[in-house]
Design a protein around this nucleic acid. Sequence first.
DNA 1: ATGGTCGACGTTCGA
Length: 258
Amino acid sequence: MIISSWNVNSVRARIENIKSYLLKYKPDIVMMQEIKTEDINFPYDEFSSMDYESHVFGQKSYNGVAIISKHKLKNIRTDLIKDKLKQSRIISAEVEFKKKVIQLINIYTPNGNPVDTEKYDYKKNWLDSLIKQLKNLSKKNENIILAGDFNIIPSAEDVYNVKSFEDDALYRLEIRKKLREMINLGFSDVYRHFNEDKEGYTFWDYMRGAWQKNNGMRIDHFLASNSILDNIKSVNINKDPRGREKPSDHTPIEIKLA
DNA sequence: ATGGTCGACGTTCGA
């Protein structure tokens, strides 16, 4: 089973790019972020005609997350985080795999820039709320896959020019520590589990020819409960969609379960 | 040097 996470930067603007990806790589489940639309305008029919069911937590113009799946998903939840601003940034669902119920949690963490503003505080509070919830959920179900756009660069080797990011909301020590807190609850950064020091960028800005110059960063992640690591056979950052026409600024990261 | 580029119920904001 292939599970993919992809910040699509508008599901409607990206629909042809997404369909090409689904046709070519046939992921079983895609956890999407930044769909940038209300539920009512989500392209349900496009995906159902390709045998995907859709579960959507949308929002007008900004944010929004969704999970599309070829397998039946259960217990869809969008209430896992107390969000003062009521932004649509988290959706979870359960999928059964080899007699195990795996809880899939799809997140779009606030960007947090510029630092030392209410935006930065919102990111910190949002992450604190997520950590608290993860702690609770881990007690109930030891099989959790948390994926999405974390807007966190884990380490210096995960960004093209660390000097310019030292005081950025994606890399500040305080923010990296929150990722560490999550991992310390009993999770692994799946990409780093399989790749000790290999570059694994998932995002390249539209500006300044970042893609052509490979000025990227690794901010889209899969965290998996250590108890299900044995079921994860591989991880792949699929750079194909980023190089196509009308790309998102992010590219999908995929894990294979068996 | 505050540029550059995307997307959205856009004439500006968020990334």
